[in-house]
Amino acid sequence: MTLSTLLEHEDNWPTRLGYASVQDGTVSLRGHDLLNALEDLSWMDMLMFGITGRRFSSEQLELFQGLWKISASYPEPRLWNNRIAALAGNARSSAGLSLGAAIAASDATIYGQRPMIGAFDFLQRARAACGGGQTLQSFVARELEVYRGIPGYGRPLRSVDERLAPAERLARKLGLWGGPHAQLSIAVAEILRTRRMGMNVAAIAAGLCADQGLTSREYYRLTLLAFTAGLIHCEFDAATHAEGTLFPLRCERLHYSGPASRGW
């Protein structure tokens, strides 16, 4: 990239996504008239078509939406991103600011987006490695050695993941169970069983979605809104409680370990 790149793009944004015409009100999404030709598009269908440029079957779309519900929208204000939403509601911020802040926080490391992307990426790399002749055992061992953990395996608060069975049940019901990445996620769980790294829903969800042909970049965009129902629920609930009452802390609950009192 050079100065010429900027000059080329001055008042010029070429795109394959779409546009909204100020002149005639036409709205085009990837070449299709969004307001007329795509009027029967479901919201999830539109989201995935806009992200990928590809259309998915109704079963696949139901899988994506079902995984959102199962994996990420707990009505639990103690969970960290939900807590941000709830604190905002209880501190009488706007619902929009609450949601924006909480979604941003969901780009997290011990939960949320990083484990989800990480699990997806891990399964894709594992499949490629096994396709290249490496054993799954040796691939897993190297990951543990280099990174000291594998996204999608292990969980910060509760080691057994109650979401695995519903996720599998959903995929079976839709006829989308048994793809290579999902199978791989189960095989990895078997390898890690002795290490107290129980499989969590991020691994199985990643496997199921990888089997639908998504890339890791596409998967990240799909999962961005996975938490939103729980976030909105927690915000709204907290907004109906008396203001400032969510987890109040006494001064004495600050456990201070810094320098002793001193003069400036």
Binding site: N12, R30, A37
Partner: peptide, 16 residues
């Protein structure tokens, strides 16, 4: 508003 800046270069709108 960058009037005229967004230029669609993908598939042409269909006649659905």
């Amino acid at each position: 508003f960058f009037h005229g800046a967004v230029k669609y270069v993908g598939q042409q709108p269909d006649n659905e």
